[in-house]
C-alpha cells in the first residue's frame, strides 16, 4: 500500500473548562477523544455524527486551526503540529477547508476574484498577470460564470457562495480537502448540485476528501469509507457498503434507521434513541453510549469497549458485537 495521505493517530482535543475569578481549570470538554483516521490519496472518508460529537473539531485540529491536546496528525508523513508557523504556511495550500456556512466564510469587502486568487499570489504560485486567467478557470470549473469575478459576496446566493468557497480552495491544487458540512446550510436542490460538483472534481483532480456531515444519505452518495462518531469517539468505521448493509454498533443502527427512504409502504424498524447527547465535559463511564443504548448491559457501564476489527476492515467499539 502506498503512503497514506493523511494519518490521524489517537488524536485528542480537550478544551479546558475554566471557572471562578482566577480562571482555574475545573475540567475538560473532551471534544475529540482518541480518534484515528487513515486517508489514502484520492479516497473519500465520511465522518458522521450528531451535533456536538466533535466532527468539526477533528477537521479543525487536522488543519491545525486549533492545537491538539495529544496524538498525531501526519500529512504525507509530516507531523503538521510540529511544524513552525512559516513551514505550516507553506504546506497549507495542499490541504484546504470548505466551510459549513458560505455566508460567513467570505469577507464581505473582498471581491470574489480577489478572494479566490489572493492565496495564489501570496504563495507565489503564479504571477500577477496570470492570476485572473487562473481564477476564471477555477470559477468556471466550479460552475460560476466569468462575469461574477468582480462582484462582492453579498451579490450571490448561498449555493453560489459555496461554489466560490470551493473554487477558492481548489485553485491551490490541494491534495486533501476537508469539507466541514459543506451542504448543510444549503437547500436540498442546491445540495445535490454541490455534491455532484464534489464528485466531479474528485474524478477530474484525484482529490481526497475528509467529508464531515450529519447527513447519512449525502455521505452514502460520496464516501468510500465512513466513520461514525459519538461524543468525541469513533464508534464504528467501515467501508460504505459494509456500514450501510451490516451496521454493528447500536448507535449506527439507530442513525441508519432514521434515514428517510423514498418508499412510503416500506415498514422499517425505527430505533428511537432516548434523551440527548450527554455533556462531553462529563461523559458517561464505560461505553459513552450506554446511557442511550437500547441494548446496554452491566459491562457497558463499567468498561470502555475496545475499538476492534470485526473483520474486513470493519472496526467497531461495542461489547455486544
Amino acid at each position: 500500500m502506498s503512503e497514506a495521505l493523511l494519518e490521524v493517530k489517537s488524536l485528542k482535543k480537550y478544551f479546558p473548562v475554566k471557572q471562578g475569578l482566577l480562571g482555574r481549570t475545573v475540567g475538560h470538554v473532551k471534544a475529540v477523544d482518541d480518534i484515528s483516521i487513515t486517508l489514502q490519496p484520492g479516497e473519500t472518508f465520511g465522518l458522521v455524527g450528531e451535533s456536538g460529537s466533535g466532527k468539526s473539531t477533528v477537521g479543525r485540529t487536522v488543519l491545525r486551526l486549533t492545537d491538539k491536546t495529544d496524538g498525531e496528525v501526519k500529512f504525507k508523513g509530516v507531523d503538521i503540529h510540529s511544524l513552525s508557523a512559516a513551514d505550516m504556511r507553506l504546506i497549507r495550500p495542499q490541504m484546504q477547508l470548505i466551510f459549513q456556512d458560505p455566508y460567513s466564510a467570505l469577507n464581505p469587502r473582498v471581491r470574489v476574484g480577489d478572494a479566490i486568487g489572493e492565496a495564489l499570489l501570496d504563495h507565489g504560485l503564479c504571477t500577477r498577470g496570470e492570476v485572473r486567467e487562473l481564477v476564471l478557470e477555477a470559477m468556471v470549473a466550479c460552475g460560476l460564470s466569468s462575469y461574477h469575478i468582480d462582484r462582492f459576496p453579498h451579490e450571490f446566493s448561498g449555493g453560489q457562495r459555496q461554489r466560490i468557497g470551493i473554487a477558492r480552495a481548489l485553485i491551490l491544487n490541494p491534495e486533501l480537502i476537508i469539507a466541514d458540512e459543506p451542504v448543510s446550510a444549503l437547500d436540498v436542490s442546491i445540495q445535490a448540485q454541490i455534491i455532484n460538483l464534489f464528485s466531479k472534481l474528485q474524478q477530474s483532480k484525484g482529490l481526497a476528501y475528509l467529508f464531515i456531515s450529519h447527513d447519512l444519505s449525502v455521505v452514502e452518495h460520496l464516501c468510500s469509507r465512513i466513520g461514525v462518531m459519538y461524543l468525541g469517539s469513533m464508534v464504528e468505521t467501515a467501508s460504505r457498503d459494509e456500514l450501510f448493509q451490516h451496521p454493528l454498533h447500536p448507535y449506527t443502527k439507530a442513525l441508519l434507521s432514521a434515514v428517510p427512504v423514498p418508499v412510503p409502504r416500506l415498514k422499517r424498524e425505527r430505533i428511537v434513541l432516548k434523551g440527548d447527547i450527554p455533556s462531553p465535559a462529563n461523559p458517561p463511564s464505560g461505553c459513552k453510549f450506554h446511557t442511550r443504548c437500547p441494548f446496554a448491559v452491566e459491562v457497558c457501564k463499567a468498561e470502555i469497549p475496545l475499538f476492534r476489527d470485526a473483520g474486513a476492515g470493519h472496526f467497531v467499539a461495542c461489547h455486544l458485537v
Binding site: 504546506i91 495550500p93 466551510f99 489572493e118
Partner: peptide
Amino acid sequence: EREFMQAAVVLGLRDRR
C-alpha cells in the same frame, strides 16, 4: 474571530494581506 479570517489562515495568507 470571523470565519473568513479562519479561511485566510487555511489559505496560508501572509500577515500583511
